[in-house]
Design a protein around this nucleic acid. Structure first.
Lengths: 240, 240
DNA sequence: AACTACACGTGAGGC
DNA sequence: TGCCTCACGTGTAGT
């Protein structure tokens, strides 16, 4: 029974040794040596016999529990010290004070940086007044710029080879989304041409080799459906 | 007797839990102006008869000093709790733990915000402007198929108009990634052509209108750097 | 009644 | 020498 306590004590002090390497060096160093001699209280050399077993047991439980509590608190304090740079002193109180100051400093920094960021952002969209093409806001802008189909024509150039001509309005990421659409369709694309000579429209021309059981109308429906699905990604259950 | 003092000291931390009768404002006050404390009155309740002034005096000094130390530490801890939002529990250990988590959260926020800021700044005034967040919302597998450049040639076709000829190996999502690269570069693309006539290679041809202060070599470096960055999205914007 | 969390006084060591 | 900081064991509330 006391062996368990002793084991706990040993582990505790070993961990204190580890901590003591980190900081709190002199105090805990001498302290450790001091208590290495002092701690074997429950061992045999102490002449106190177990007269009242119940109370001493509960007392030792309490002692070791309190010891663990102190250890946990010190560990947390050291961890706090670890995430705070520029710690002046190793005091417990100084560690907490430095942490407070650092958090307030981070608060100020965050505020000023965010002010600067929104100022930059607002300044950015000022000179180029591209109203139909709004700039992307902060990360994870939920807005989606859908592909707006202006024309979609398919025509055979020979057997099983289709020329797809797609005209759509030019918005942000339209080219990327268009590529995603056509890659998702797993088509046999011979050539693809994307032209942006006009600043408002976007022309996409593809030569596509059809499979055995496909035809032109089927392909057109698939393209339209894929574009709709990419425009509305909420309906995720689609398989092609 | 000592019971009064003891009750005050006990109500100190308990007041955090329950109701602030004695605590909040006074604690903050004692935090700002350090130890012009309220409680330490060693004279009145010191009921022990001081006949031997030397030892008992020093002992009481020590006691009240230690009391002030503990009070200061608790005040600091309380102040730390005050600057940390979303404190779950009122434990001492939990307060420190929440503070640690909050500081790490602020670290992450600061890092991402600063990255965003320098990205915005670089987009604004640097010739190299990368859009690090293209619409990569695909639920596809996390494997990345890098763009493998086989050839990259640039040639002037007239003043400030460059023909970019890029040959790369054809892997999954290469077309999409290529489009992302060129969209991120915010170039003035006149036409773009992607051809996949061969099943192994992929030819990309672009006509690009250069800006005033750009030249061909600069553009080539930008393209190569952008492709490298898109191939290795781990190292964000710092290694260019 | 067992367990947690705390404040207290005390002794020890460093400046 | 005093002053400072610390860990310890203990008693005591609340759960």
């Amino acid at each position: 029974m006391e062996n368990i306590d002793e084991m706990n004590q040993k582990n505790y002090w070993d961990s204190i040794h580890q901590i003591e390497d980190y900081s709190w060096n002199e105090l805990q160093g001498s302290f450790t040596s001091y208590y290495d001699s002092s701690s074997p209280d429950p061992d045999g050399n102490q002449s106190s016999p177990e007269l009242d077993g119940t109370q001493s047991a509960s007392a030792s439980k309490n002692i070791v529990s309190e010891r663990n509590r102190r250890k946990k608190l010190n560990d947390r304090l050291f961890a706090l010290r670890a995430v705070v740079p520029n710690i002046s002193k190793m005091d417990k109180a100084s560690i907490i004070k430095d942490a407070i100051d650092y958090i307030q400093l981070l608060h100020d920094q965050e505020r000023s940086i965010q002010a600067e960021l929104i100022e930059l952002e607002s300044r950015k969209l000022e000179p180029m007044n591209l109203d139909p093409c709004p700039t992307r806001m902060n990360r994870s802008d939920p807005r989606v710029y859908p592909i707006e189909i202006l024309e979609l024509n398919l025509s055979y150039v020979e057997d099983k080879t289709v020329l797809v001509s797609l005209k759509c309005s030019k918005k942000r990421d339209t080219i990327v989304r268009l590529c995603e659409v056509f890659e998702s369709l797993k088509l046999n694309i011979v050539t693809a041409n994307i032209s942006s000579s006009s600043s408002e429209k976007l022309f996409n021309t593809l030569f596509i080799q059809l499979g055995e059981e496909e035809d032109m109308d089927n392909l057109k429906t698939k393209i339209e459906t894929a574009i709709k699905l990419f425009n509305h990604p909420d309906q995720t259950a689609f398989t092609m």
